[in-house]
């Protein structure tokens, strides 16, 4: 019997799909590692520090701009059955004028009423994401935060494909990623994105394992996961490789002391300016 492994199987399937040419033509995939013909925003491609401005009033006028980018949660969408409930951002946000912004939209599945994940629901999600992100003046990238379960991956991939098609080709798309996606999974291969940010906080039962692996010198298997980290101010820092984008989370509204204290904990080589 011919010996297979899962990797071989997936590659074969991938080639078969490509040959069938059933997928729509997508714009050139933008890679954070290889310059595309129309490269994504320079600011996005270089290592930098990004602060998440989450669902609360945020006064970030103290941020050194333009070296610090702000990823703004512009809304949450809760999916349940065949419906979508929007929770748009309603909290004020103050920034230095020259700050670059990333629009972040979070998707949640109601565990009590699993979403249908049909075409209509997906179209509504796409419409909401586009409406909210364009409402953030001058946003330079879009990030989707969705902890998709295995059964939701097809929907998520289709969603990202729809977004990629409707957004300017030069606009990067980033997603947050569970550590497990980056360490032992291959499904990121199928996604038309520029970045998957491994979220190294609130990891639950995987926390010890992931931290131990990183401390032992392991890196994330997937290349999309190797350009950034997501970390939180209220957890110990994992082992970080230099030269990667750092997304910083704080469980409460940022203050200058909180930002300064957190920044001082970061390894010096992680503070490369994006300018």
């Amino acid at each position: 019997m011919k010996r297979w492994n899962i990797t071989t199987g997936l590659v074969t399937v991938g080639l078969a799909v490509a040959c069938c040419c059933t997928l729509p033509q997508l714009p050139p995939k933008l890679s954070v590692f290889a310059p595309a013909k129309e490269p994504a925003s320079d600011r996005f491609l270089t290592p930098q520090t990004i602060v998440w401005a989450w669902e609360r009033p945020e006064s970030l006028e103290f941020l050194p701009s333009p070296e610090i980018v702000v990823a703004v949660l512009v809304g949450r969408l809760r999916l349940a059955a065949d419906s979508m409930t929007p929770f748009p951002r309603l909290q004020p946000l103050t920034l230095p004028q020259s700050t670059s912004r990333i629009a972040v939209v979070r998707l949640e599945s109601d565990p009590r009423q699993r979403p249908d994940l049909g075409n209509e629901q997906r179209q509504q999600v796409v419409a909401a994401i586009l409406a909210w992100s364009t409402g953030l003046p001058g946003f330079k990238a879009l990030q989707i935060d969705f902890d998709a379960t295995v059964t939701e991956r097809v929907f998520y991939r289709q969603l990202l494909t729809d977004l990629r098609r409707q957004l300017p080709a030069t606009l990067p798309i980033s997603i947050t990623a569970l550590a497990s996606w980056c360490l032992g999974d291959v499904w990121l291969d199928e996604l038309p994105i520029d970045e998957a940010v491994p979220m190294l906080f609130r990891m639950g039962k995987d926390a010890t394992l992931v931290r131990t692996k990183l401390a032992a010198g392991a890196d994330f298997n997937h290349p999309l996961c190797r350009s950034s980290y997501g970390i939180s101010s209220d957890e110990p820092l994992p082992t970080l490789r230099p030269g990667r984008r750092l997304y910083l989370f704080h469980p409460r509204a940022w203050t200058e002391p909180a930002f300064t204290t957190f920044r001082q904990r970061l390894p010096a080589t992680s503070l490369t300016s994006g300018v």
Binding site: R76, L178, R202, M203, G204, G230, F249
Partner: peptide, 11 residues
């Protein structure tokens, strides 16, 4: 309510 954290799967 505390802001939602961008991680999971939730326990």
């Amino acid at each position: 309510c505390m802001p939602s954290a961008a991680c999971g799967p939730y326990s």
